[in-house]
Design a protein around this nucleic acid. Structure first.
Lengths: 210, 210
DNA sequence: ACCTGAACACCGTTCAAGT
DNA sequence: ACCTGAACACCGTTCAAGT
């Protein structure tokens, strides 16, 4: 422990986080979860990885649960971006967009299982603020619903409550993800085939018969 | 602490569990989870509720994870029974059976959220024995697949790989359950309607057009 | 097939006192 | 906007020694 309390030491440390310790905590938490699972997420470990005291987190979050909530939010942001990206690359047809988003959804869950676990975890925050409708989560769902609505506007998708229709699709891809029904998502892998298979079944009830 | 070590005391205690402490541990764990969530499941608490030492569990389970695995199994057994029950009460038509089972699935998840959480939890047992295909879980899925197969035999459901078709239905109801898309399951409640709505969409892709 | 009791290495969280 | 350090009430798990 060299030079305790000298200007240089303090400045170096201070500059490392220069005011964004909050983001650093979330990032470190995200990485920790991805590598070792939710159980490994301890305030002590996060602190030691960032080189700050284990109490530093309490400056930015009232609670471990509050930090977890922020991590969940960050996960949903990455998730929404993945979905948006897939949609933009899928051309104009609503069916193609839905199929691409379905694949992106399942792929995200297969690639980042720990994120999904935190994002959609139940218990834990029992009767707390975890009940509040996550903004980034709402955005992710909004992308899906918007696709449905555009498909209805262009005449590809049958009429009906777009929110309910979007939920049907959402439940389908979420179920596939959570049950790990499609894990091999390599090109022409079994997972790809199953996602396409279930998409096709859903489509025949969802699309307009032309 | 009266009469330590007398015959009566020992016999009374010994008879309370009379050899089925293993079941008692699972039952107590199940109740604890249902009432206070997975977090409340501690070996200390289970022990004190059963009036045994907190170390007694180690006579029957190598681990807390092993006890949790047994609890998961018990949950799946209850679950499979609920599905079978719904099917038996639904008449002979495959479509009616599937609909009843879908409702039973979602209802079970809504009524016993903590069971579902344990049964389908990811992380926790990372790379351990939790990967092994749960027998009771397989039974629950088997009921669904059997219904599909009978529907195909009777000409109600279209031909195709029954396992894949069953998985599509399974993913749908599982997704609805996990996303809590149908919580009000009272007669003519919103939840009932949504389950029927999504069933109808799936059916148009699943059933034969007559 | 259990029991007590002590111990170990962890947790989250609070508090007091610093800079 | 951080820090150290001690403390508290919890964990799961191991061990030693009993009945």
């Amino acid at each position: 422990m060299p030079g305790k309390g000298t200007r240089v030491q303090k400045k170096t440390r201070g500059q490392y986080h220069h005011g964004n310790l909050r983001e650093a905590l979330i990032d470190a938490g995200l990485k920790l979860i991805a590598r070792f699972g939710v159980r490994a997420l301890t305030l002590r470990e996060i602190g030691s990885q960032l080189g700050v005291s284990r109490m530093a987190a309490y400056r930015h979050f009232t609670d471990k649960a509050a930090l977890l909530s922020a991590i969940r939010e960050a996960g949903f942001t990455l998730f929404a971006e993945a979905l948006e990206d897939a949609r933009h690359k899928a051309g104009k047809a609503a069916a193609a967009q839905l199929k691409a988003m379905a694949l992106a959804y399942v792929r995200f869950a297969a690639t980042h299982p720990a994120y999904i676990e935190v994002m959609f975890s139940w218990g834990e925050d029992r009767s707390e603020e975890s009940r509040k409708p996550n903004p980034a989560g709402a955005r992710a769902f909004g992308i899906l619903e918007e696709t449905i609505r555009q498909g209805q506007a262009s005449g590809e998708i049958r009429a009906g409550n777009s929110t309910l229709l979007a939920r049907v699709v959402w439940a389908q891809v979420h179920g596939i993800s959570m049950l790990r029904l499609a894990t091999d998502l390599s090109p022409s892998g079994e997972g790809q085939k199953f996602v396409q298979f279930s998409s096709a079944i859903l489509e025949s009830g969802l699309l307009l018969n032309e």
